[in-house]
């Protein structure tokens, strides 16, 4: 078949003229079905290099650190408040960016690292403000929270079923965490027990128990899946 516009002879693979875009059609000519020269719609994805993304992110994180450091040094002639900013930005980087440097970031490693970094930051704040709340309050509270979050994420990551048990257990532990906070506040800041921690604790524990109860009953699980499916 020839192109009606430019006159070039078209191979049977061509649905349109590659030179002028005119559709190849003639009512009296039946063209044989042939395979295209190349498969259609199979285009390699252009991936941005992981290193490039990391360099961009690192630049985004380092820039505010340098700016605050410069301002602090310029105004106070020493590092004062900018250290908090630096630690906080570093913490965000460690929690949200660092795991993506690795091919398969495992929560068994990265969640404890995150909590350890938080403990270090709190220790620094305690040290610079001459506080005496780190050992008796911040350290035990954050350590407990770190343990339950690590245990939950690791179990969810490695287990193939039983997620409701794990999440139920997490809510119960979170309920207890409220009491622990109140307990260490009492010890550290010499306050009396007024029971505020029971208000979040009771619904959290009940919710956790409900999830465990649901997980034990297949009928309840199915009913829940029916009602809540997306």
């Amino acid at each position: 078949m020839y192109c009606a516009n430019c006159g070039v002879k078209l191979a049977d693979t061509e649905k349109k003229c590659p030179l002028c875009g005119t559709e190849a059609y003639h009512p009296d000519i039946i063209r044989p079905e042939v395979n295209p020269l190349y498969p259609q719609d199979f285009i390699p994805k252009r991936e941005i290099s992981k290193t490039t993304i990391h360099i961009i992110l690192l630049t985004l994180f380092i820039t505010p650190i340098l700016v605050t450091l410069y301002c602090d040094l310029y105004i106070n002639r020493t590092v004062t408040w900018s250290a908090y900013v630096m630690f906080a930005i570093a913490l965000i980087y460690i929690i949200f960016v660092l795991p993506f440097w690795f091919k398969r970031p495992t929560p068994a490693v990265f969640v404890p690292i995150d909590f350890f970094s938080i403990i270090l930051l709190l220790h620094y704040v305690n040290y610079t403000t001459d506080g005496d709340w780190f050992l008796t309050f911040a350290f035990p509270v954050v350590t407990y929270l770190g343990l339950i979050v690590t245990a939950t994420t690791v179990l969810l990551y490695y287990l193939k079923k039983g997620y409701l048990y794990v999440i139920g257990g997490f809510f119960i532990a979170l309920g207890l965490f409220m009491d622990i906070i109140e307990l260490f506040i009492m010890i550290t800041f010499k306050l009396n027990f007024d029971g505020w921690s029971l208000i979040p604790m009771i619904p959290l524990v009940l919710f956790g128990l409900a999830l465990i109860a649901i997980s034990t009953s297949r009928a309840a699980r199915e009913a829940l899946a029916r009602k809540l499916h997306i």
Binding site: C6, G7, V8, K9, L10, A11, T13, E14, K15, K16, C17, P18, L19, C20, G21, P36, L37, Y38, Q40
Partner: peptide, 28 residues
């Protein structure tokens, strides 16, 4: 297109084949 026109002017019969995308409109 211009290369084809030159060949056409010389009287050479050519067959054209491509990997063009079906949805692309060609500006000529």
């Amino acid at each position: 297109n211009y290369f084809f026109r030159e060949l056409q002017r010389l009287g050479v019969e050519v067959t054209v084949q491509s990997n063009q995308r079906q949805e692309v409109e060609i500006d000529v």
